[in-house]
Design a protein around this nucleic acid. Structure first.
Length: 482
RNA sequence: GCUCCCAUCGUCUAGCCCGGUCUAGGACAUCGCCUUUUCACGGCGGUAACAGGGGUUCGAAUCCCCUUGGGAGUACCA
């Protein structure tokens, strides 16, 4: 039997980081099992569902590298893959349940329902449906009212017995017999409700394994009832722990960026996000931390999920991103970096050699593509001096003044826009022999005069890519600080 | 309220199923040192955890129970 899994988002917003993780797990499981991964859009909540969100979520999924075999834009044998286009199927199934006495038409109004609920709660009973329509003696009346055009919901008759789920991550979970009462299958508007279409679709689409968030664990009883009523066997279930915020509360906007797009915009690498997300609730059998999720193969197995909720914390993601950046081939790195540099930036006016040197220089120092421009703006273009205690100290040395005088003159004499590496080396040697300065005095003095900072990359690599103009400005700014 | 789930360093986790090899391992963060006459990278090292209480057992992070804490569900939302 081939494995078939699915990811079933509701298009009510952007792709959430938690949803992305669930999608990833399904994708990787299908990959490991050489199975099929289905994308199904759960858009039965007409009020909140929007077509544009569906497109956006698909875009984000693809950006992350989560590729599916069947979906709304990838026809397969089990479509359509949008629930709003499957309404007839749900109706057919619901009607068969009614015909067999496993579900019934309910004419109760919202007010009546609310009243029942409140009374039950007040009297200490579980707030289950207690309307008359579940009784056979009213079936005829129901049929008549229906025939006269009245609208009714279809409600499922809960069997009132206990169910035991064998979950692949939770183990044996027992749901007591009075856990849920009769619940809605089809709303009076004719639209089906989540628990129902989910099961119908999973049966119709021949889903074999359901990997989803733990928030659905309690829903599973209702779904088990429906599977049973429909005469279908159960798929395997794996309820993965949830992602929570630093305050151990459900992840929400106030925890910062929770949508995948946010990370795309901030120039995170999709492979780094995938890598990090997979590790949040799953562990590599060899405890590997940095990898390409697509290389996991059969190393990704569903037995290594952790049961406890994980706090979503950015620190490690940043590190993972930096590791992936460093693993990038130079050309890919350059392309990526360039996407995050402003169009009219100084960078684009430079020679290929210059660009390569700059990227090579900062490659190990950036965690994000977007860090690159920040670094060149600061190290290469900003003529202002960053006055720190350490820098003041360097300025107080007599040798620094000498170096400054020397460099000021030499830089002015330069004809080209940059000091070549050779030019800088000879200039540096001259400085050393003429002024007889060495060691820390030499290096720090030169660094401060030419870069305006007391720290930064290797001087010999850095200076040749600083525009002469900027160095001159820095030199005159430094002059005012002596 | 009721029902279900969960509980190892600050964080992600290994170990738990099949008790001894665990004075609990790794990673991020943090601190210190080395290296690079700076910073970063890299290397080495430090601080830091089995929620609490009862059992069971010669022996428990590992098995059982309770407490506490956290999460989820309890809709004609998904």
């Amino acid at each position: 039997m081939t494995v078939r899994v699915r990811f079933a988002p509701s298009p009510t917003g952007y792709l959430h980081i938690g949803g992305a993780r669930t999608a990833l797990y399904n994708y990787l499981f299908a990959k490991a099992q050489k199975g099929t991964f289905v994308l199904r859009i759960e858009d039965t909540d007409l009020e909140r569902s929007k077509k544009e969100y569906e497109e956006l979520q698909i875009e984000d999924l693809k950006w992350l590298g989560v590729d599916y075999d069947e979906g709304p834009d990838k026809p397969g044998n089990y479509g359509p893959y949008r629930q709003s286009e499957r309404l007839d199927i749900y109706k057919k199934y619901a009607q068969s349940l009614v015909d067999r006495g496993l579900a019934y038409y309910d004419f109760c109004t919202d007010d009546e329902l609310e009243e029942m609920r409140e009374r039950a709660l007040k009297e200490g009973r579980p707030p289950h449906y207690e309307g008359k329509w579940r009784n056979e003696e009213f079936f005829e009346e129901a049929a008549n009212r229906l025939a006269s055009g009245e609208k009714a919901a279809i409600r499922f008759k809960a069997p009132g017995k206990s169910y035991t789920l064998h979950d692949n991550v939770r183990g044996r979970v027992v749901f007591p017999e009075n856990m849920v009462g009769d619940f809605i299958l089809i709303r009076s508007t004719g639209l089906p409700v989540y628990n129902f279409c989910c099961v119908v679709d999973d049966i119709e689409m021949k889903i074999t394994h359901i990997i989803r968030g733990e928030d659905h664990l309690n829903n599973t009883v209702r779904q088990m009832m429906i599977y049973e009523a429909l005469g279908s066997g159960l798929p395997e279930f794996a309820h993965v722990s949830l992602l929570i915020g630093k305050d151990r509360q459900k992840l929400s906007k106030r925890h910062g960026a929770t949508s995948v797009v946010n990370y795309k915009e901030e120039s995170y690498l999709p492979q780094a996000i995938a890598n990090y997300l997979v590790l949040l609730g799953w562990s590599h059998p060899d405890e590997k931390e940095i990898f390409d999720v697509n290389d996991l193969g059969t190393e990704f197995d569903a037995t290594r999920f952790s049961k406890a909720a994980a706090i979503y914390d950015l620190e490690k993601l940043k590190w993972v991103n930096g590791m992936h950046i460093r693993a990038l081939p130079l050309e890919t790195l350059q392309k990526g970096i360039e996407e995050f540099i402003e169009n009219d930036h100084f960078y684009f006016g430079q020679s290929e050699d210059w660009k390569k040197s700059a990227i090579e220089l900062y490659k190990n120092q950036i965690e994000f593509f977007s860090d690159f421009q920040k670094r060149i703006d600061e190290d290469l273009l900003n003529p202002n001096v960053e006055v720190t205690d350490k820098l003041k100290d360097v300025l107080s040395w007599e040798t620094t003044k000498q170096i400054h005088g020397f460099l000021d003159k030499k830089v002015k004499e330069q004809k080209s826009d940059f000091l070549s590496k050779d030019n800088f080396d000879s200039l540096f040697n001259e400085l050393k022999t003429d002024l007889k300065i060495k060691g820390k005095q030499l290096f720090m003095g030169t660094r401060v005069c030419l870069t305006g900072h007391d720290h930064g990359p290797e001087l010999g690599d850095l200076v040749p890519i600083i525009p002469k103009e900027v160095m001159q400005k820095r030199l005159s700014n430094i002059a005012t600080l002596f």
